[in-house]
Amino acid sequence: MNFTNWSRKNLFANWKDSLLTITILYLFYVSIPPLLNWVFLDATFFGDSKKDCTGGGACWVFINVWIKRFTYGMYPNDQIWRINLAFVIFFISIGSYFFVSSKIKKYIFIFLTLVFPFLAIFLFHGGSLGLEEVETRVWGGLFLTLFISVFSIIFCFPIGVLLAMGRRSNLPVIKYFSIGFIELWRGVPLITVLFMAAVMFPVFLPSGTNLDKLIRVIIAITLFESAYIAEVVRGGLQAIPRGQYDAANSIGMGYWKSHLLIILPQALKIVIPGVANTFIALFKDTPLILVVGLMELLGMVNMAKTNPAWLGLATEGYVFAAFVYFIFCFSMSRYSLSLENKLKTTN
């Protein structure tokens, strides 16, 4: 009864509504069953080669067989435990962060920001203490996506905040440097920046020095994204009333103290949605490193689909990649939303 009333009010209120409802229901009828058939009912999930795919639906065998490459790139199979170990440590630290007292939280935070990055790089790269060296050119897949995203995000955020403050500085040198820096990086496509990092940058280095291509790419993405973060954060700084600066100054706080304790905590809270937006964009921009020969998740899918034994499975590959990107981006989006709500209630 309830449903009848509800649908009469919302779906069939007049002839226009009814027409729209029927059209849309028809479109659902036409598109959804074939989609479900393709993804689930007619799909083949298990097997060893393309020949096992006889159902007429999606050939998920492709993903199943290649999942190791999609996840770890060309990282040697017998060394993959190192990546897994780093991620297990990472997720245990993050997970336990939410269940321990604030005293231990401090130590976990210090570990995650100051110790873990070096530990992770050591585990991934090796080369000493009995760990075999694994060159960055064989790094790839989702592992590389996460590696580049996490490090770029960690570095670009503080640089962006400093640039935002610099752009509002009273000191002309700092102000115009910040403006110049931001406008330069915002005015150039990321692809160009990546090309320059990979091809042109080594030309400027003193001969004999060789900076790893992956490091150059991370530096390039970091500088590029920091310009965007700077503008987002500047918006937040501008929203803080003059009275907050006056009050902070009047109790004897200088520039850094008033910014770190009063202005930034308020400004950053305001810009959470914008910062999350930039981080999600950064994550989705990582496939562009394909142009300099690094292959993260999408790059590996691209490579696998051209393998002679697996030709014609591009759709499955791209659907899978899209699904993985979506999971991560959606998680980031939800996390930023929960952070927003959490900070709102304590105020």
């Binding site: 006056d246 009047s250 109790i251």
Partner: peptide, 15 residues
């Protein structure tokens, strides 16, 4: 500034 206290029209507490 650390010797001179100030009170403002708009209070300017840190929210």
């Amino acid at each position: 500034r650390s010797e001179v206290g100030m009170v403002f029209q708009q209070f300017n507490l840190f929210p």
